[in-house]
Design a protein around this nucleic acid. Structure first.
Lengths: 210, 210
DNA sequence: CCGTATCCGTGGAGATACTG
DNA sequence: CAGTATCTCCACGGATACGG
């Protein structure tokens, strides 16, 4: 990217990560951890193959990511964030928190991935009842699955399914995420197509970051 | 900007502010407050005039900035951030904090402005001795002037000059900002061209955000 | 003087096809 | 699977000219 040519830490940051797609590549590496080219491409629907290659090379030169050879069975290249790359997490969180205001806008053609279903509650929601026994919530949306573990004041998440969750939330992405992040009420979510099964009462534990 | 087409709050945020120059325009409006086209152009060295016009129009449509007519004497248009625009401050702070790691890299041709000298200590430094009487530091660098007020656990700043500061720091941008943000020591700063006048001892109050 | 509009050269983005 | 090569096209940047 062409430098802004300004002695300011914001413009210096954007000199490095201000290019199109760059911060989303960092996002995927944060969410997925060490992963392959194909995993990245899959987590970045819409990116061109050559652009992903270019960005990975640039990010490696900038020292934000590293490549390593995967263990024998697979024998491919794995990409992972360096410490400098990991240090972008607070910036991505702040940007994502700001972006929540646009999540009620529905664009049916938008792509959706399980890891995006998982990270939003983990990053933007806390457990308001730390002394109550932990509970598990199964999230289902657009065929993507994620599991929330709510307890000890924390909300943890992972992609996938769990047996015997305390609550199942199933509906279009904007209903599940809108409910969890506090931009719509349970009644509105149900109206918009959310179905629930299990202990609806535990939803009161979820406290969105403001 | 072309949408990323992903249902994720980070990509939604970047759909709005991910274009080149956009976040730097927000930065200037945050630092300068309500200001004129020319003030923005001056705070964004390197931007093309048409691009600034386009971005201002896009940002207005996105609801991040508003225009208002200035009071009679000047009779020009003033631009200011809306609440949605102001809400980007935490994201810019997080990005700027990350970008500090690149500030020791000296690029002599970089532009420099008083407001960038002012915001960095206010955003990234705290007062480690809240119960000690407040002190004033005059910063001078590349012909730009800023004043720091350190006290009550806070660091406030403004552009300009003050009479009778407790300390004057004068030197190249990377020495003044490097010293204040804790990336170099006083000895290193002096070695790199910083000159001081007054109470050097008050520098120990300044505690960089990690 | 303030702000916008136009023209043009260059480079990055995007789509597709292809290869080890 | 993991990229590379090629092509088209738009966005950016720079200069300049224009309207309030």
């Amino acid at each position: 990217m062409r430098s802004y040519g300004q002695y300011c830490s914001i413009s210096r940051a954007l000199d490095v990560v201000g290019d199109r797609w760059t911060l989303l590549i960092i996002r995927e590496l944060l969410l997925q951890g060490s992963c392959r080219y194909t995993d990245l491409k899959n987590g970045l629907p819409g990116i061109a193959a050559n652009l992903l290659s270019n960005r990975l090379r640039e990010l490696e030169q900038a020292g934000l990511i590293g490549r390593e050879d995967a263990p024998p069975p697979v024998a491919t290249t794995l990409y992972r964030l360096t410490d400098d790359g990991l240090a972008l997490e607070p910036a991505l969180k702040a940007l994502g928190l700001w972006g929540l205001r646009y999540m009620p806008i529905v664009r049916p053609e938008d792509a959706f991935r399980a890891q995006w279903l998982a990270y939003a509650p983990a990053w933007f929601v806390t457990d308001a009842e730390p002394d109550t026994p932990p509970v598990t919530i199964q999230l289902i949306s657009s065929g993507e699955h994620a599991v929330l573990e709510v307890g000890a004041g924390q909300v943890d998440s992972r992609i996938g399914e769990t047996a015997d969750p305390d609550l199942i939330l199933d509906g279009p992405p904007h209903t599940v995420l809108g409910l969890l992040t506090g931009v719509i009420t349970l009644e509105q979510a149900v109206q918009l197509g959310l179905t629930t099964r299990g202990r609806r009462d535990i939803l009161t534990r979820l406290q969105p970051t403001t």
